[in-house]
């Protein structure tokens, strides 16, 4: 297998009092879509910001290594990193409503990145920006290019964000919950667009989401995060067929699935008891306080990730025990 495009190794992000990401490792191949799933507070967005090296100033990275296309990102100086941002690694954010500068036209915000990285100016930049708006399926781009962000809907703004992100044909696109703030019909359109662009421009995508439906449809590989750690990694099919980690099982049980024709009147969705806050200061497995199958030993050590089969890792030593694997605990 060829060397992966992005290789994150033992990444830890630390704030003065907390450690929202700890010893996280994953790889993304060329043109591959990796989904990172987990609930709010599991460290997904900080991981994304760490990849861009846009963490807040108070955050420290005490150990870990991020390798992008053979280069060690932590070894690059500010200038080299800026040169990478927007050109080779691009990012789109969760909030399309606030992610665009309200006082500049969208055309200006698209051409800005073209001028910066490709030196395209004036008319050429403008026509390239119109092409990009066309690419992200914005109707009537010749007119729309002079609009200000407040004149566009949320879905349109996210398309503009995507246009900015793909303007320089990046090799890696980080999408941090790109559809969370949009309504459901628009979500599917935006994700479809992302997937099409991924194939057309052959970029790799790191898709951060808490929506398992999104994962099932668009990911090549899934990393499940809990409290800053990777608890399970699998191909989406396998993950949905046989979720191993109790947290993954809980997540799946808590999401409605169309196939089962489950209606809210027929049965209640289960929930994972407790909250992710309970992981703070936990000596053992961070999920222990909420885990239905926790044993005494879980309080003493953080379970290692174990390779169960090819492309399959799980961080729970009890996930192979039949009664656990059959999901008695969650009523699956």
């Amino acid at each position: 297998m060829a060397a992966p495009l992005l290789k994150v190794d033992n990444l830890t992000v630390r704030f003065p009092t907390t450690e929202p990401v700890s010893r996280l490792s994953f790889e993304v191949g060329e043109g591959e879509t990796l989904a990172i799933v987990g609930e709010s507070g599991s460290g997904k967005s900080l991981t994304a910001l760490a990849l861009m090296q846009l963490l807040p100033r108070s955050a420290k990275i005490p150990n870990g290594r991020i390798e992008f296309a053979g280069r060690d990102l932590f070894g690059l100086d500010q200038k080299a990193m800026r040169n990478l941002r927007g050109r080779e690694i691009a990012m789109i954010f969760q909030e399309p409503m606030t992610s665009l500068n309200p006082v500049l036209t969208i055309g200006r915000q698209i051409t800005e990145v073209l001028t910066l990285h490709e030196g395209i100016r004036g008319k050429a930049a403008r026509s390239r920006a119109i092409e990009l708006l066309n690419l992200v399926r914005i109707p009537d781009p010749q007119r729309r290019i002079d609009d200000y962000p407040h004149q566009l809907s949320g879905g349109m703004r996210q398309r503009v964000m995507i246009a900015i992100a793909v303007a320089c044909r990046p090799r890696l696109l980080i999408a941090d919950e790109p559809t969370t703030a949009l309504d459901v019909t628009i979500q599917a359109q935006v994700l479809d667009l992302l997937d099409t662009l991924r194939r057309e421009l052959s970029m790799a995508v790191v898709l951060i989401t808490h929506d398992l439906g999104v994962v099932a449809q668009w990911a090549d590989k899934v990393v499940v995060m809990y409290a800053g750690r990777k608890v399970e990694q699998a191909l989406p099919g396998a993950l949905f067929r046989t979720p191993l980690h109790p947290y993954t099982r809980g997540l799946l049980a808590a999401s409605p699935r169309l196939k089962t024709n489950l209606h809210y009147r027929d049965a209640r969705l289960t929930e994972i008891p407790g909250s992710i806050v309970s992981a703070a200061g936990e000596k053992g497995c961070p999920f222990r306080p909420r885990c239905a199958v926790a044993r005494d030993s879980c309080a003493h050590f953080v379970p290692d990730l174990v390779e169960v089969s090819e492309d399959r890792l799980v961080a729970c030593p009890y996930s192979f025990i039949p009664e656990v694997a059959h999901g008695a605990a969650f009523g699956l």
Binding site: R85, M161, I164
Partner: peptide, 14 residues
């Protein structure tokens, strides 16, 4: 602290 400033940083602007 606005999001669009982060967007600008993500573009690689100085």
């Amino acid at each position: 602290s606005q999001d669009y400033v982060r967007t600008a940083a993500a573009k690689g602007l100085s």
